[in-house]
Amino acid sequence: MNSAIQNVSEETIPESPLAVTSSSELADSQIVVDDKSAEKAHSYVTNPQGHAPGAFMQVALNLKSKVQSIVIGLFSIVFGLVIWHFATLYNFDFFIDFQNVPSPLKVGGAFAHHLSDSEFYVHIQVSIRRILIAYSIAVFLGILLGLLVGRSRMARAAILPYIEIIRPIPAVAWIPMAILMWPTEESSIVYITFLGALFPIILNTVHGVEQTPEVLIRAAQSLGASKLQIFWHVVLPSALPSIAAGLAIGMGISWFSLLAGEIISGQYGIGYFTWDAYSLINYPDIVVGMLVIGALGSFSTYLVRLCMRPALKWNRKPA
C-alpha cells in the first residue's frame, strides 16, 4: 500500500500544483504512513481533477478497505462462535443460562441433516407461499390506499383514523381475534402477515405523495396535464423512492408477523418448525429455524430492493 501511494503521487507530480503538495505532504508523513497518508491520498483522489491515476488509487483504496472490513467481520463472527461454543461446553450459567443452548457444532449438524430432509423444505415453502399471498395483497392495497390518502382530502379524513387506530396494534395481539374471524387457520395467518406489511407500505406511500414538489405539479399543469395525468406521470414516479422504501420495510415486517402467526397456529411453516422444535426439546432445530427465518427475511428484502432498482435509476445520482 505504502509503495503504491508513492508511485501514484510521483506520477501525478507534473499534473497540477495540488498533486505536488499532496505528494510532498505524503513524503513527509511516510514514516507514520497508514491511515493519515491514506486519508490525504484519498482527499486528493476525490478532487475533481483526479485523472486515471487518482481513479486507480481510489479503486485500490476502496478494495483495501473492503477487504479489511470483510476480514474484520469474519474474525468477529468466528470470535462470537468460539464464545458461544465455550459457553455451551462449560455450561455457562450466570444470569444468562447456556445449559440448554445447543453448541454451534450441533446446530451446524442439525442444519446439514435438514438440508436432505424434504419436510424441512415443505416448511420453508409454506412460509414463502403465505408471504407471497399476504405481501401481494398488502402491496396492492397499501399503495392504493396510500395514494388515495396522500392525494385526496376526503379519503384522508376517512381512512387516516383507521390507520392510526390499527397501526399500533402488534401483529401478535391480533392472533386470537384473527383465529376467531377467519374461516381457516391458513387465512388467519395470511391476514396477520398482511397486516404487518400493510402499514409501512401505506405510510411510506403517503409520505412519498406528499413530498411531490409543487413546482413539478405546476409544470405538468401548464403543459396541459389533467389531474389523472398528473397523478400518473408526476405524483406516482415522484413518490416511487419512498414507496420502494416502504415495500422493503413491509417485507421485513411481514416475515416478523408471519412468524408470530405460525408459532401460535398451523402445522407447517418455518415459524411452526421453530416452535415445534422447542416443544419436542429438539434444541438445535430452534437455532436452525431462527437462522433460516433471518436468512429468508434478508433475502426477500434484498429481492424487493433489487426489483425496485431499475425504476429508481434517476434517484441515485444527487440532482
Binding site: V215, L216, R218, S222, L223, H233, S238
Partner: peptide, 19 residues
C-alpha cells in the same frame, strides 16, 4: 381560469421531471 398549454411556463426552480 386555470393553467393550460397555450401559456408555457418556465420556473426559477428546476422543474424538469427528474425521472
Amino acid at each position: 381560469k386555470k393553467p393550460a398549454p397555450d401559456r408555457g411556463m418556465v420556473f426559477q426552480q428546476y422543474s424538469l421531471f427528474p425521472w
